[in-house]
Design a protein around this nucleic acid. Structure first.
Length: 418
DNA sequence: TCTGGGGTCCTAGGACCC
DNA sequence: TCTGGGGTCCTAGGACCC
């Protein structure tokens, strides 16, 4: 018999901050998105006093933050990535079959574990991670991925672990579980199911007209229905290279100047190219875009363009150059730009790169990129970069409440008084 | 004043080919 | 009035996820 287990960190970003700020342990905590734009993570204490709506603008929350003495942090992705790695390393010890689903979630598959007491095993996972990292997690165990997701939601309200393996236990939960909370059923699909009179996961499971489900919710929705029935359709997935990648940011201020957009796009290109080299891939095409602020009553403009490379590349300089060429085409003076980004498409492993017959030098500045990566790894990000990235970066994202890189930078190491 | 970022999968429809 | 059939590839857009 095969079982699926979903382990999910509670309010992950907030929990990471709390590990290094124990004084916030009993206070509500929220973490802001890039640019301190809006709130994206909340502890249960914050939810208890009315926070928790995803992406509520920060400026609209300020009064309530004061009133409830909420601890606020800018997002610190370097810290979260590093804490995530610690959690995943521990989880790996509990099963050889594991899929890292996101920064704060992983599926474990248990095969040949039939004699295990899963309740006890789940508690052990929880305790181990809490003791070794300080991060609280929830554990849900069932017989398909979708069902283990549901078990995980139940765990949140019930001591952190929930096991549902026999049919009766599963149905008891499904009867009370709203269809809109099922993994893979978003608001659109939920509305369609409601129109068919389907409100609970149990009703969805029993709904007979599979053809109609296929038509309304496509193949994805049908698979969810099967998984609810206990038929496993979604297997554990291997970590695969990204098929698209990109970097984009909102600016801290309105940007009018083309020069500044060039700098910003150079930064984003640098970052995206690094992601590409880290997974040892190259891309054949890219896009760049610039936006005005859709929330403001100002003239709107959305410019985007495309470039293709004659052979695959992950060269920062080549990608910056292409981004600048796109900018030349799409830039319109006079607009107040608020956001920009680059996307790298048609990505393949470097080993499969098709070289171009007519490009005599396919070297792609490879050694230069390697040396730059090495220096930046050793002495910290942005130690060395293309001059196109500029120096002052007036467009920079705002992060007024950002904590240190406690786990990834020697100079930010936490000081402990004894 | 201030409104995130990074992904995946699926489908329909157009372009193109023989 | 009548206007093939079958196939592939690509892209845009929708929906969903964290």
């Amino acid at each position: 018999m095969r079982y699926f287990c979903l382990v999910d960190c509670n309010s992950f970003y907030c929990s990471c901050e709390r590990v290094f700020h124990p004084e916030t342990r009993n206070r509500p905590v929220i973490v802001l998105s890039n640019n301190d734009g809006c709130a994206i993570a909340f502890t249960k204490e914050a939810k208890a006093v009315g926070f928790g709506q995803m992406c509520e603008p920060f400026f609209q929350l300020k009064d309530r933050i004061k009133k409830y003495n909420v601890a606020v942090f800018s997002s610190n992705y370097t810290l979260y990535d590093s804490m995530s790695k610690r959690v995943m390393d521990i989880l790996r010890e509990f099963s050889p079959d594991m899929e890292i689903y996101s920064v704060d979630e992983a599926f474990l598959q248990f095969e040949g574990f039939d004699h295990y007491d899963f309740m006890e095993y789940g508690q052990k996972i929880r305790k181990d991670i809490l003791v070794k990292t300080g991060i609280p997690v929830g554990v849900g165990i069932s017989i398909t991925k979708v069902l283990s997701k549901i078990a995980n939601k139940m765990a949140k309200k019930n001591k952190g672990v929930w096991v549902m393996i026999n049919q009766q236990d599963i149905d008891d939960v499904l009867k009370t579980f709203p269809v809109k909370d099922i993994w893979g059923i978003g608001s659109r699909s939920a509305a369609k199911l409601n129109m068919l009179g389907i409100k609970t996961a149990y009703e969805f499971k029993l709904y007979k007209d599979e053809g109609l489900i296929q038509k309304l919710l496509t193949k994805t929705g049908r698979q969810v229905q099967e998984e609810l029935r206990g038929v496993s359709c979604l297997a554990l997935e291997e970590a695969e290279d990204k098929k698209n990648t990109g970097t984009s940011r909102s600016f801290g201020v309105n940007v009018y100047d083309k020069k500044q957009l060039q700098e910003a796009l150079a930064h984003f290109s640098t970052h995206a190219a690094l992601k590409l080299r880290r997974q040892n891939s190259v891309c054949y095409s890219m896009q760049a875009f610039i936006y005005t602020n859709p929330f403001q009553e100002v003239p709107q403009y959305y410019g985007q363009g495309r470039a293709t490379f004659s052979s695959g590349t992950s060269d920062t300089l080549k990608i910056i150059t292409a981004a600048h060429q796109i900018l030349d085409e799409i830039y319109r003076p006079g607009f107040a730009y608020k956001k920009a980004g680059v996307l790298l498409n048609h990505i393949v492993p470097k080993g499969q790169n098709q070289l171009d017959l007519f490009t005599p030098d396919p070297s792609d500045n490879e050694q230069l990129n390697q040396v730059m990566d090495l220096i930046n790894r050793k002495y910290g990000a942005h130690t060395i970069k293309s001059a196109a990235c500029g120096i002052h970066n007036d467009w920079k994202t705002i992060a007024d409440y950002k904590t240190q890189h406690y786990t990834t930078s020697w100079k930010d190491l936490l000081k402990v008084k004894i």
